[in-house]
Simulated assay, not measured.
Amino acid sequence: MSSDPTDAPTPAPPSATARNGPAVSREEFDALFAAVRTWGRWAPADRGAWNRVSADHVRRATALVRSGTVVALARPWDTAPGPDNSKPALHYLSDLGDVEPPEPSTHKDFIGTDYHGKGVSHLDALSHIAYRGQLYDGGTARELVGAGGARFGDVSALGPLVTKGVLLDLPAVLGTSWLEPGQAVRAADVAAAEEALGVEIGEGDAVLLRVGRFRRRRELGAWDLDASSAGLHVEAVPLLAERGIALLGGDGDSDVRPSPVEGLHSPVHALAVAAMGVPLLDNLDLETLSATAAGTGRYEFLLVVAPLDIPGGTGSPVNPVAVF
């Protein structure tokens, strides 16, 4: 069970403020979707933007390893229900070694999770998101995803990823402990973070956005992230598309909430996964990564992401590893 204080009184997070700008209409969003779309660009299509990462990218990323410091990015397996964990993970012992003979005795576990949510660190594959009924590359979601799994864009198609990771540590840049729920990160904030942290997002990179969710959670308690969370405004996505990123992730799920787009609860998901073919990493605990980056003065590193090989799966629980 997680040691986070989820049973503490839950503070009411503030709603989105006027500084996040006016609402984005569906017409404006659809134009943005078309502008960043990469359909028809790669083969195999269901690896999406991971096709950008070549052997040269991997070699350049491994050159970032200097001290050999390894930082795991997953949060603990959370079996405690809470405002941000409506479907807690399961864990119990299925064998307690109490049957004799033979020797040696064994102890076995069962684990299970409905991992798409706010409780488990996980990867979203390209079959996870459809917009206007279409998956990435234009296939019809109802024809390609059913009760037996996905026939396009499953997590098995992705395989492991080894590339350069870039940490955009917004609280470190702003001199705060965290971004308040509802605060949007815009394109100008991304560019300012690059300059302040001495990094430059390039083709094939994995971008990790820290808003300080887990520091706030540990100090103030859990809250409902579906109602209010810091994250990217859709206005920031074209910059990431222009840079040619391969992966986007963070300590939230990348989207600011309440959503700035009328009628869409997760517009960054739609742009990244369904338009750009960029898988997402959700619910990473980036606090140790933040401290390590600050201590070394380096906000780029080797990143290794190895999802489970689940044929037909729309994603996977995952423990990404950063190496400095």
Rank of each mutant, 00 (worst) to 15 (best):
A193I: 04
R52P: 00
A63S: 13
R19C: 10
G138E: 06
G21V: 04
V268F: 07
A23Q: 13
F29L: 04
A23Y: 06
H269P: 02
T163I: 11
S266I: 14
A188E: 15
S156Q: 15
S290T: 13
F324V: 04
F301Q: 00
D109P: 00
A49N: 02
V305L: 05
F301I: 03
A12V: 14
V36P: 05
L174K: 14
L247M: 14
R75K: 14
G175I: 10
V304M: 02
E194H: 02
V323I: 15
D95W: 00
E28M: 09
A172N: 02
A270S: 15
D124W: 03
L220Y: 09
D109F: 10
V273Q: 00
G250P: 02
D114C: 14
V261R: 10
G138Q: 02
A293L: 07
W178C: 08
M1F: 12
G21H: 08
G148H: 06
E235P: 01
V199F: 04
L271A: 05
A43M: 04
M276C: 09
A45Q: 08
L264F: 03
S177V: 11
H128Q: 12
A206F: 06
G295C: 09
D253P: 00
T62Y: 08
A196F: 09
D255F: 07
L96W: 10
L32D: 11
G277E: 04
G295Y: 07
W42T: 13
A193C: 11
T176G: 06
R60Q: 11
E103P: 02
R52D: 12
G153E: 08
G146H: 09
D84F: 05
E300H: 10
A63K: 03
E200K: 07
Q183K: 13
T113E: 10
G175T: 09
D154Y: 05
V321Q: 05
V185R: 12
P181R: 09
R75G: 11
G221N: 04
L161D: 05
P83R: 15
L264G: 06
A241I: 00
R243C: 04
G148V: 08
A293P: 02
W50P: 01
T38Y: 09
A8G: 03
L167P: 03
G231D: 05
L264P: 01
Y131A: 03
P320V: 09
D309H: 13
A172S: 15
S25E: 07
A306Y: 07
L170M: 12
R298T: 05
L96F: 11
L158F: 00
G212M: 01
H107W: 14
Y136F: 15
D56W: 06
S290R: 06
R132L: 09
D285A: 04
V53D: 00
R217P: 03
K108M: 15
E219K: 03
L308I: 10
A270M: 10
G250K: 01
V173S: 02
A89Y: 00
L161S: 02
A34H: 12
P22R: 15
A241R: 15
D7V: 13
T163D: 06
D154S: 13
E100I: 07
A35L: 05
A274I: 02
A89N: 14
G48C: 08
A45W: 00
P83G: 08
F29T: 08
E203G: 00
R52Y: 06
K164I: 13
R47P: 03
P102F: 06
A193W: 04
A49W: 04
R218P: 01
D137N: 13
T140Q: 12
A230V: 11
S156W: 04
A74P: 07
L248I: 10
S229V: 09
